[in-house]
C-alpha cells in the first residue's frame, strides 16, 4: 500500500471542484424546491379537510418509510417505464426534493403547533384579519420554531446528494469513486471529499445558526 500522498489530492482538485459544482447545484435546487413543497405540503397537512390532509400524511409516511437509495433508483430507472424519463441530474433534484420535503413538512407542522391557538383571539379582538394574523404572527413564530430541524434537513440534503453517484451523476462522490477505479488511491480521495463535504456543511450550518440567532433574539430572555 503506497504512502499517503498529499500531492495526489492536489492534482485531483480541479476534477473534484467540477464535481463539487454539480453537488452544490443539485443540492441548491433541491433545497429550494423541498422548502416550497414542504410549505405547501404543510398547509395541506394541517387543513381541516381530510381530503387534503390525508394524502399528504400518506406521502410523508411512504417517503419516510423507504430507503432514499431505492427512491433514487425508482425515479431514475422506474419512472421511464411509466413514460417519464429524467436525466441523472433532474432525477437527482426530484429525488432529493421528494425526500427532504417530507421532513420539512413535519418540521413546519411542529413549528405551527408551537404557535398555539389562543394568540389568535388576541389578534381577532384587536381587529386583525385572519390573513394578517397568519402573515404577521403565525408565520414568524412558526418559522423560528421550525428553523433548527429544517436546517438539519437542509444539511442532510447536501450529504444525501452523494447517493446520486449511483445513477451516474458526476457529482463530488462520483468523481472520487471514478478516480479511485483508475488510481486506487481510496484513502486520499475519500479523505479529500470528506473534507470538502464537511467544509460545505459547516458553512451552511454557520449561516443557518446566524439566522437562528438573529430571529431568536426575542426568546433569549436576558
Amino acid at each position: 500500500m503506497p504512502a499517503f500522498d498529499w500531492g495526489y489530492i492536489w492534482e485531483a482538485v480541479p476534477d473534484l471542484l467540477d464535481g463539487l459544482v454539480v453537488t452544490i447545484y443539485v443540492s441548491f435546487l433541491a433545497i429550494l424546491l423541498s422548502l416550497t413543497v414542504g410549505a405547501i405540503g404543510c398547509a395541506l397537512r394541517v387543513a381541516d379537510h381530510k381530503i387534503l390532509s390525508f394524502p399528504v400524511a400518506g406521502y410523508v409516511e411512504f417517503i419516510r418509510g423507504t430507503p432514499f437509495l431505492v427512491q433514487v433508483f425508482f425515479i431514475f430507472y422506474g419512472l421511464p417505464s411509466l413514460g417519464l424519463t429524467l436525466s441523472a441530474f433532474w432525477s437527482g433534484v426530484v429525488a432529493l426534493t421528494v425526500w427532504a420535503s417530507v421532513f420539512h413538512i413535519e418540521s413546519f407542522r411542529a413549528g405551527l403547533s408551537a404557535v398555539g391557538k389562543e394568540i389568535q383571539n388576541a389578534s381577532a379582538s384587536l381587529g386583525l384579519r385572519s390573513w394578517q394574523h397568519t402573515l404577521f404572527v403565525v408565520l414568524p413564530i412558526a418559522t423560528r420554531s421550525a428553523l433548527p430541524s429544517s436546517l438539519n434537513t437542509i444539511v442532510a440534503t447536501i450529504k444525501n446528494s452523494a447517493y446520486l453517484q449511483a445513477i451516474g451523476l458526476v457529482e463530488l462522490t462520483f468523481v472520487a469513486v471514478d478516480r479511485i477505479a483508475y488510481d486506487f488511491r481510496s484513502t486520499e480521495m475519500f479523505l479529500a471529499i470528506c473534507l470538502i463535504y464537511l467544509a460545505v456543511v459547516l458553512l451552511v450550518s454557520a449561516a443557518g445558526h446566524r439566522l437562528e440567532r438573529r430571529l431568536n433574539r426575542p426568546y433569549v430572555g436576558r
Binding site: 389562543e118 394568540i119 383571539n121 388576541a122 389578534s123 379582538s125 384587536l126 381587529g127 386583525l128 404577521f136 404572527v137 414568524p140 413564530i141 423560528r144 430571529l215 426575542p218 426568546y219
Partner: peptide
C-alpha cells in the same frame, strides 16, 4: 371593544412597542 386575556397573549416575537403598533 378591547379585550384582555388570562394568559396575556402577547406576540412573543415582537418587542413591547411592536406588540402595541401592529394592529
Amino acid at each position: 371593544v378591547g379585550m384582555v386575556f388570562q394568559n396575556f397573549n402577547l406576540y412573543p416575537h415582537l418587542t413591547i412597542l411592536d406588540n402595541c403598533t401592529l394592529a
